[in-house]
Amino acid sequence: MSDYSDMPIRLKWFFAHWKGYVINREYLSERERYAALIFFKGLKQLDQEELTLLKEKYYTDRPAQANFITGISKTYLQYSDEVMAMKLDMSIRDYRMKRIKIEKKLEMILHKVKQEQKEYLSNQAEEFTLKTGRLYLKSFEVTLLGRILPDYILTQDGRQAKVFHKDDKLAKDFIYRLGMEKEPVKERKHDYDFDCVYQWK
């Protein structure tokens, strides 16, 4: 099972799919829906001037790759900095500096949004596994006094990981002492109100 919550933040990829997320919204895969959620939540945190500058460059009418199911384009080509600078009556250098500043701001926002969404989903999960990096907690032993013995076993196969239930005290101990993080077990891990993300415009 893919863990969408660990998806990388790649601005160019988000920008290319921006308009495609909107016009193909009913046909997006689960991973695409989750990516759109993160992206649009991030866009909402820009001010109107910043959002407009990015939208005019990346939310274009220049179709590229089509959706296999609908035939509608899922990605769009951006306008060059030269074209945008001319449109805004700015020097290319000034436009580029302004764009890069906004994009760096958005990238930082997206990393924060991604982490917040990941924590939200983890805390909502009724069942979850624990992991550190790419290793999952497979098994461990507990003393009669309720202390966890240090000889626990890790695995790279998430299917073999021990499943915990919400509010499990032992799980909280692993998270607190070893810095492990939750990974929801549900088949449909990303339960969210997707319609709300389109209110960015």
Rank of each mutant, 00 (worst) to 15 (best):
D3Y: 12
D6R: 14
R10H: 09
F14R: 02
H17Q: 08
G20Q: 02
N24I: 05
E26F: 09
L28M: 03
R31H: 11
Y34Q: 09
A36H: 03
A36T: 02
I38C: 04
F40K: 04
K41D: 08
K41H: 11
K44H: 06
Q45A: 01
E49F: 12
E49Q: 14
L53A: 10
E56A: 10
Y59L: 02
R62A: 03
P63L: 02
A66Y: 07
N67C: 06
S73H: 06
K74E: 10
Y79S: 04
Y79R: 09
Y79V: 03
D81P: 02
M86A: 14
S91D: 08
S91N: 07
R93V: 13
D94Y: 04
D94E: 11
M97Y: 11
L106I: 01
L110I: 00
K112P: 00
E116F: 03
S122V: 07
E127H: 13
F128I: 02
F128M: 03
T129H: 04
L130P: 00
K131G: 04
G133L: 08
K138V: 05
K138T: 03
L145D: 12
P150F: 11
Y152F: 15
T155L: 04
T155R: 02
F164Y: 06
L170T: 10
A171W: 05
K172Q: 13
K172F: 10
K182P: 01
K186D: 15
K186N: 12
K189F: 08
H190N: 15
D193E: 14
D195R: 13
V197G: 04
Y198G: 06
